[in-house]
Design a protein around this nucleic acid. Structure first.
Length: 251
DNA sequence: TCGGTCAACAGGCCGG
DNA sequence: CCGGCCTGTTGACCGA
């Protein structure tokens, strides 16, 4: 299926948000393969795109998961009691098992509403499991501990995917806003460039470039003898007129 | 029929 | 090394 909206994920979208809505997790802080930074220090989103070189070769040959009948699964089925009281196996009669206790084929297990509800409750309290909690939930729900574990894993993945989509939308909006702002500023610069040729220098200065006159501490000139220029540009007249400096220059 | 959902799994990473 | 978690994937199922 691939990432929602990015079927052929050639590009890896790395985003970091200070998302307060993020479900609290106890994930380890340093994880090499993590694309999402859950504890981004900044308020502003960061966005970076990168080519995914090997595209996470992890489960490249994942097709074997079913045909192998899973060593891990067999290990668990052998070690655990195979009680599945509340779960609903959609196709085939419940409890269709071969001699080693494993369910023949891979039937779709549907959790009942009660089971899902209880798992959701547990997930709200804490998104990760400890062995005791896992065992207790499995007992209460008449599921195998492995099933509880898998449910929590998938639930975390769903939460993360949803949050990623939300963050992605937010970053798209940010990107658009910044692009618009960038264009606006570029236009402004162009306008200023065209005005520059036809105006005296002090007219070319925007308000932002006007600073307080260091000598008179006024913006603008109140001296009737002076020109209409708001304040002197460049070195102060007095600086050059002072006899001391003049002396220095002469010497 | 097809796309979406979800349980289940494989393989990798990391901390204890 | 083991257990827990993450990520990507598969296949069954379901509804439009």
């Amino acid at each position: 299926m691939g990432f929602h909206g990015f079927p052929n994920a050639e590009l890896v979208l790395e985003l970091g948000l200070n998302s307060s809505s993020m479900v609290e997790t106890t994930r380890r802080p340093t994880k090499k393969s993590n694309l999402m930074s859950f504890d981004h220090p900044l308020d502003q989103p960061s966005l970076s795109l990168a080519l995914s070189g090997d595209s996470c070769g992890g489960a490249a040959g994942g097709g074997s998961s079913f045909s192998n009948a899973s060593v891990k699964r067999e290990r668990e089925v052998a070690s655990e009691d195979s009680e599945r009281g509340g779960a609903i196996y959609i196709s085939g009669e419940e409890g269709e098992e071969d001699e080693d206790g494993s369910v023949n084929g891979r039937k779709k297990l549907r959790l009942t509403k009660a089971q899902s509800g209880l798992l959701e409750e547990a997930f709200k309290l804490h998104t990760t499991l400890n062995p005791q909690k896992k065992q207790k939930l499995a007992r209460d729900l008449k599921l195998r501990p492995r099933q509880v574990e898998v449910w929590f894993q998938n639930r975390r993945a769903r939460t993360k995917l949803k949050q990623t989509e939300v963050d992605c939308e937010y970053l798209k909006k940010c990107c658009k806003r910044l692009t618009d702002e960038n264009q606006r500023l570029r236009r402004e610069v162009e306008e200023m460039k065209t005005q520059r040729v036809s105006q005296p220098i002090y007219m070319q200065l925007s308000a932002a470039t006007l600073t307080m006159c260091p000598s008179c501490e006024q913006i603008g000139d109140t001296n009737p003898a002076s020109t209409n220029i708001p304040f002197t540009l460049g070195p102060k007249k007095e600086f050059f007129n002072s006899s001391l400096v003049h002396q220095r220059l002469v010497n």
